[in-house]
Write a protein that binds this DNA or RNA. Structure first.
Length: 170
DNA sequence: AAAGTGATCATG
DNA sequence: ATGATCACTTTG
């Protein structure tokens, strides 16, 4: 069943591992796509130097400060749309980056496959009929790792284990 | 290993 | 206004 508002109100640090194994759903016309999430990363607060919001609220990052349960989609390297899920309470910037799903890897490929672009920025995953997340009770095993592509972050946040990867068995 | 790509943000 | 930066992918 679809994840409800209360689910998204928890912290991204808690949600990132929990979202592994959930089903990312995308409806395009009469086509319904469902992909199991296999890799996530957590971006948490202005103190996290890898988080887009670490320099404070701007026109681009204001969406991170909203209440959990909406999508944050932005363009990376001029080419790739990256999908994040905003979590927690309003006023505190935190989000979970969806890095990969079953059948493919790489956050850019994921959004290309699912036809997600910046028009989904701010889309409510609770109310939308085009994009949402379902829980079918699957509780996978996972491992934690360091985040990638954030060399500009400070040592503390570069080394923190805020990337979560589904492990194959069980 | 390197470049292609364009929105975003800080500077002037 | 212009320029540096970047949570990636593809190609050689």
């Amino acid at each position: 069943m679809r994840l409800a508002k209360e689910y998204y109100k928890r912290h991204a640090t808690e949600l990132a591992p929990d979202l592994l194994g959930k089903l990312l759903c995308r409806k395009i016309g009469d086509n319904l796509l469902k992909y199991r999430i296999t890799e996530t990363e957590c971006y948490f607060g202005e103190d996290d130097t890898a988080c887009h919001a670490h320099k404070g609220k701007t026109n681009r990052t204001r969406i991170l400060y909203e209440e959990g349960g909406i999508a944050y989609v932005y363009l990376c390297y001029g080419i790739h749309n990256l999908l994040n899920i905003v979590t927690g309470e309003a006023g505190f910037p935190e989000a979970v980056l969806i890095r990969g799903a079953e059948g493919f890897s790489g956050p850019g490929k994921l959004t290309k496959q699912m036809k997600i672009d910046r028009s989904f920025n701010g889309e409510s995953l609770i109310l939308s009929d085009k994009l949402w997340v379902e829980d079918d009770g699957f509780k996978p095993e996972f491992k934690a790792a360091r985040r990638v592509g954030i060399d500009y972050a400070t040592e503390k946040y570069k080394n923190i284990l805020w990337r979560f990867i589904l492990t194959g068995s069980k």
